[in-house]
């Protein structure tokens, strides 16, 4: 029970202190809306193109929603030494880091469904496999959050975390099949695309929304889950090696 009280209160504090602040709420709303509008205008087609755009917009919303604040919630607290309080709490490091990342995961999931809420009113989404969509969004959120966590615990300064995040996020957008199908990328870039978690998330969403997935959903889910485990384990290893040295 002790650890769940700690877990819940860490999550609650982060939600109040970081995620539910007006600038972050507006960022969470405006960012997906801006991406939706940008993709829509760029496509030059009618409302029927929305289901085609939706997977990419959702994936990008999750990616930015989850990774943006981890530099603050983790790196900034480490820099200000308040993170030491958490390290001194009688809960396992695994539990502590899950508590610190759950806020980002929830924020990412909510971000993903902002464009869906708009699309429901203007497009025909009757053929969508909602169960797969929800599971895919949750897994994309977890893997993106753990990617953000890995970045946050690999650096010492907040600006380093933000720079490092962008260094990973922006190439990922172009390589994961959002703008161009992976098979149309240069041959030498395709292996790199398959080394990115978002590629599998986007493929899952394409499959669930448009029935246009390239890989079997089980493979996408499996690889995404593996990314989650590896990134979380690597982050914990980094914390133990660098912060409890």
């Amino acid at each position: 029970m002790t650890r769940w009280i700690a877990f819940w209160n860490i999550l609650l504090k982060d939600m109040r202190s970081y995620y539910l602040k007006p600038p972050n709420i507006s960022w969470g709303l405006i960012f997906p809306l801006a991406w939706t509008a940008m993709f829509f205008i760029r496509s030059g087609s009618g409302l029927e193109s929305i289901p085609m755009l939706l997977p990419g917009v959702m994936a990008v919303s999750v990616l930015f929603g989850t990774t943006s604040l981890l530099a603050v919630t983790v790196t900034f607290e480490k820099k200000g030494r308040s993170f030491e309080r958490l390290l001194l709490a009688p809960i396992s490091l695994e539990m502590l880091m899950l508590a610190k990342t759950t806020g980002a995961i929830l924020f990412g999931v909510i971000n993903a469904f902002v464009p869906v809420l708009i699309a429901v009113f203007v497009a025909d989404l009757r053929g969508v496999a909602w169960g797969t969509v929800v599971s895919a969004v949750a897994l994309i959120a977890v893997s993106s959050t753990f990617l953000g966590l890995f970045v946050a615990v690999s650096v010492s300064e907040v600006f380093e975390a933000q720079t490092f995040s962008n260094f990973i996020r922006f190439p990922m957008i172009f390589l994961c099949g959002l703008f161009f199908p992976v098979e149309r990328l240069p041959v030498w870039l395709q292996p790199l695309s398959h080394a990115l978690p978002l590629t599998y998330g986007v493929d899952l969403l394409h499959g669930a929304i448009r029935r246009a997935g390239r890989m079997p959903p089980a493979l996408d889910f499996g690889v995404l889950a593996a990314f989650c485990v590896i990134l979380f384990a690597a982050s914990l290893r980094n914390i133990r090696r660098r912060w409890i040295a």
């Binding site: 009280i5 819940w8 504090k13 030491e84 309080r85 709490a89």
Partner: peptide, 22 residues
């Protein structure tokens, strides 16, 4: 090294929760 954005009361309650206090 308490949390600058929390009040004194909130800081104490948060630290107590880390030790599992209800």
């Amino acid at each position: 090294n308490l949390y600058p954005e929390l009040t004194g009361f909130e800081n104490l309650c948060f630290c107590a929760s880390l030790h599992g206090m209800r």
